[in-house]
């Protein structure tokens, strides 16, 4: 692979313009992790079967393991690294941490981004709408309930409500 010619593209990564050169058959996942040093995006199955590689491409949640890097010329990519602003965690990151919605954390960047895209389109989702939106992301640790609760709590806070976690979501019944 070393002496193969590279392609160079310009794109926006987490709101910043970026230029990157890489072998033309690389996926966006590989370009992010290996050529841009952004290892927040995780690799799992690499076949579209787990969701852990999810990023937002022009605001839409897609699987970076099945998108070519060269297809991203001129487009806007958002990864988990872009979520915190000025040292402040995103409300979803806060609630995921507080409610135990992240355990091993391997699935977490993807869940955060899918939830962010959901809340941008629908600030007041029902539990069912959250479940459907997150139905392409596997988590082997949490059992999902804490993830749904964290999305609900963050949604409330992002709507400007003063919302606290319920006692049982912190300590159980």
């Amino acid at each position: 692979m070393s002496n193969e010619s590279k392609v160079k593209i310009a794109l926006s990564v987490n709101g910043e313009p970026a230029e990157v050169a890489f072998a033309p058959h690389k996926t966006l996942l590989e370009v992010l992790r290996e050529d841009l040093g952004l290892t927040g995006t995780k690799h799992g199955c690499e076949l579209g079967e787990c969701g852990t590689c999810t990023v937002l491409l022009d605001g839409t949640a897609v699987l970076s393991c099945l998108v070519l890097g060269v297809a991203c010329e001129g487009r806007a990519v958002r990864t988990v690294e872009g979520m915190a602003q000025n040292g402040q965690l995103h409300p979803l990151q806060e609630t995921f941490a507080d409610l135990g919605a992240a355990q091993c954390g391997y699935c977490t960047p993807a869940f955060l981004l899918v939830a962010e895209a959901l809340l941008a389109a629908n600030p007041h989702p029902t539990r069912d709408e959250i479940k459907h939106a997150l139905a392409g992301n596997l988590c082997r640790c949490t059992g999902y309930i804490k993830i749904y609760e964290a999305v609900e709590l963050a949604a409330a806070r992002m709507r400007g409500e003063v919302a606290q976690p319920t006692r049982e979501s912190l300590y159980g019944r």
Binding site: G48, G51, T54, T60, A61, V62, L63, L66, V67, V114, H132, A133, A135, G136, N137
Partner: peptide, 9 residues
Amino acid sequence: VSTPLLRNM
């Protein structure tokens, strides 16, 4: 078909 992420693509 599959998942919301795959249907986006």
